[in-house]
Simulated scan of single mutants.
Amino acid sequence: MNTKITSFLLVLVSSFTLLAFSSGNPQQKEKPQEKNKEKTTPAKDSKEAKETKEIKDNKDKTKSATTPKTDTVAVKEIPVVKETDTLQIDPNSKLKVYKKNAHASYYHHKFNGRRTASGKRFDNNKYTAAHKKLPFGTLVKVTNEANGKSVIVEITDRGPFSKVRDIDLTKRAFMDIASNKNSGVVIVKIEVVEAPK
């Protein structure tokens, strides 16, 4: 019985030994391959990284060359406001003083797009005004008495509905003559433009 067990154990050990020598140690075989991978991979990766970076740089260069910058496009599209954007009158026209030391204010932006008393749509970027008595379509020169700046506006609406104020200008017209852009009222001289005969 002991001999059978012994011979069985010997056969078993010898078969394991043969198996180990024929196939080799799997851990030992994988390590050299891993070492080779470690040696080649960084160099390969750095080469691929350089190529990828070069391709990306070339794309960026061509993109910047063909696509205009949005800043430039936006600046070109913004209309430039000039001094001549105010209403123009005939040089032969006469000015008749309507009122001095008048109080001028400006419309709130909430009125933008609403119909005025004359039927025209209100636009805070145009040169129009509201007056209690002057007929619609009358051209009026409004001069800031403190700094001498003036604008020509057309009466298109009724108002202002305050005893203290005499004329309501569009915000654009008001800002053109105001010394202090934060103020809401300016003391002005109102002159009616009379067409030449």
Results as ranks from 00 to 15, higher is better:
residue 172 R to E: 02
residue 197 K to N: 08
residue 185 V to P: 00
residue 188 V to Y: 00
residue 63 K to C: 09
residue 75 V to P: 00
residue 68 P to L: 02
residue 127 Y to A: 06
residue 125 N to F: 02
residue 197 K to A: 10
residue 166 D to R: 00
residue 38 E to G: 10
residue 22 S to H: 14
residue 139 L to I: 12
residue 88 Q to V: 14
residue 20 A to P: 07
residue 179 S to P: 09
residue 157 D to N: 10
residue 51 E to P: 11
residue 73 V to T: 12
residue 129 A to R: 02
residue 193 V to L: 04
residue 157 D to V: 04
residue 158 R to W: 07
residue 179 S to C: 07
residue 17 T to K: 05
residue 196 P to V: 03
residue 155 I to L: 01
residue 181 K to A: 14
residue 163 K to A: 09
residue 17 T to P: 05
residue 144 N to K: 00
residue 84 T to G: 08
residue 154 E to H: 00
residue 71 D to C: 00
residue 11 V to T: 10
residue 108 H to M: 11
residue 35 K to P: 03
residue 126 K to E: 15
residue 101 N to L: 06
residue 137 G to H: 05
residue 189 K to F: 07
residue 86 T to L: 07
residue 74 A to T: 06
residue 171 K to R: 13
residue 119 G to C: 04
residue 38 E to C: 08
residue 2 N to W: 09
residue 179 S to T: 09
residue 28 Q to T: 12
residue 103 H to P: 01
residue 84 T to A: 11
residue 128 T to W: 05
residue 61 K to P: 06
residue 129 A to Y: 04
residue 85 D to R: 04
residue 191 E to V: 08
residue 160 P to M: 03
residue 176 D to F: 07
residue 48 E to S: 10
residue 141 K to S: 12
residue 177 I to P: 07
residue 56 K to Y: 06
residue 13 V to S: 08
residue 82 K to R: 14
residue 67 T to K: 14
residue 2 N to H: 11
residue 164 V to A: 08
residue 134 L to S: 07
residue 19 L to V: 10
residue 156 T to V: 14
residue 149 K to L: 12
residue 80 V to E: 13
residue 123 D to T: 05
residue 128 T to I: 10
residue 69 K to W: 09
residue 10 L to T: 14
residue 146 A to M: 06
residue 162 S to L: 10
residue 192 V to D: 03
residue 46 S to H: 10
residue 153 V to G: 01
residue 132 K to Q: 11
residue 171 K to C: 07
residue 47 K to P: 00
residue 154 E to G: 01
residue 138 T to G: 01
residue 147 N to A: 00
residue 171 K to Q: 09
residue 169 L to C: 09
residue 30 E to K: 11
residue 197 K to G: 09
residue 28 Q to I: 07
residue 18 L to Q: 06
residue 12 L to D: 04
residue 57 D to E: 15
residue 133 K to T: 13
residue 49 A to N: 12
residue 99 K to S: 11
residue 32 P to L: 04
residue 28 Q to A: 12
residue 180 N to W: 06
